[in-house]
């Protein structure tokens, strides 16, 4: 079984490498690292990055933002890069990898695969794992590269930046589980990506909107029925709260495990549902 699983993962990675978009992502990461090398050689940049963030970054009252107290500009930059990478990995990553699920079900391919002595669920788990592995490598390459350049240039080794690698990958894995399920149900890459990401974005903003509606309806922002339903929806979509968890780790060096466990659990549930749906499909 393990050998078959690894064969599917390997095939997914081969398919990924054959797609120029994944190679493009690696090139963009390399260019980013090269730019960082050049920037970090400059004295003014080095001094600026090592100075306290509060000197440079102010809030609306021209005061240092409370969250930045005790942080260097470099740590603030790490946080910004991590948050951008989290968003990019979810959206660009989904765009690049959605095809792995739907190509599995293409005519001429699926008959052949289903004729092999492989349980159907293994194809989904293998393809899903292959996609997550690709994003893990992409994110690791960029983050580790930047971290190495900064460490060698500035002689400061902030290991907490590296913690963003598993967190960003987990965020992608959560959303990709949802995209995988939609992909199985619709058999369309575009539908999978658009519907999956739309659900994720909607779940991110639905609670404040629901609270506003509740306030309009009965002046209550906390416990109205609309808000309750919205919260249930919000907490059943994977990766919600992962941005906050990443912020916490980078700013206060504390890891809140709830979003991690919730995302991991929900991703497993969504992949399990996708496997079940795939096992019942006829081709």
């Amino acid at each position: 079984m393990l050998r078959k699983f690894l064969a599917i993962v390997e095939d997914t990675i081969r398919e990924g490498l054959a797609k120029k978009t994944i190679l493009g992502m690696l090139i963009v990461s390399t260019v980013t690292i090269i730019i960082a090398v050049l920037l970090f050689q400059m004295d003014s940049v080095q001094k600026g990055l090592l100075s306290p963030a509060g000197e440079h970054i102010k809030n609306g009252s021209n005061q240092p933002a409370p969250g930045l107290m005790g942080l260097s500009v470099l740590e603030y930059v790490w946080m910004s890069i991590s948050m951008m990478l989290l968003v990019a990995s979810i959206f660009v990553g989904s765009f690049v990898t959605t095809g792995f699920i739907t190509s599995l079900m293409e005519k001429g391919n699926i008959d052949l695969l289903l004729s092999k002595p492989v349980p159907r669920w293994l194809y989904i788990v293998g393809r899903y794992s292959g996609a997550v592995l690709i994003i893990l490598v992409e994110v690791s390459y960029l983050i580790f590269g930047l971290w190495l350049v900064a460490g060698l240039s500035l002689h400061t080794w902030s290991g907490v930046f590296l913690a963003s690698i598993p967190l960003i990958t987990l965020s992608f894995a959560g959303v990709y589980a949802l995209v995988t399920l939609v992909g199985i149900l619709t058999r369309s890459s575009w539908f999978a990506m658009i519907i999956g990401l739309a659900i994720y974005v909607l779940a991110s903003i639905v609670v404040p909107i629901a609270q506003w509606i509740d306030k309009l309806l009965n002046g209550d922002t906390g416990g109205g029925i609309v808000t309750t339903v919205a919260k249930i929806f919000h907490y059943t979509i994977p990766s919600e709260g992962m941005g906050g968890a990443l912020n916490e780790v980078l700013l206060s060096k504390e890891l809140h495990s709830t979003p991690l466990f919730l995302t991991t659990g929900l991703a497993m549930v969504y992949v399990a549902i996708a496997c079940y749906a795939f096992s019942k499909k006829e081709f």
Partner: peptide, 23 residues
Amino acid sequence: PENHRYPAHLTGGQVLRYFGKLS
């Protein structure tokens, strides 16, 4: 199967290796 299709990026040997592993 009729009208079968193999991944275009694979060589003949790689196709057989993949399906052999699945078998």
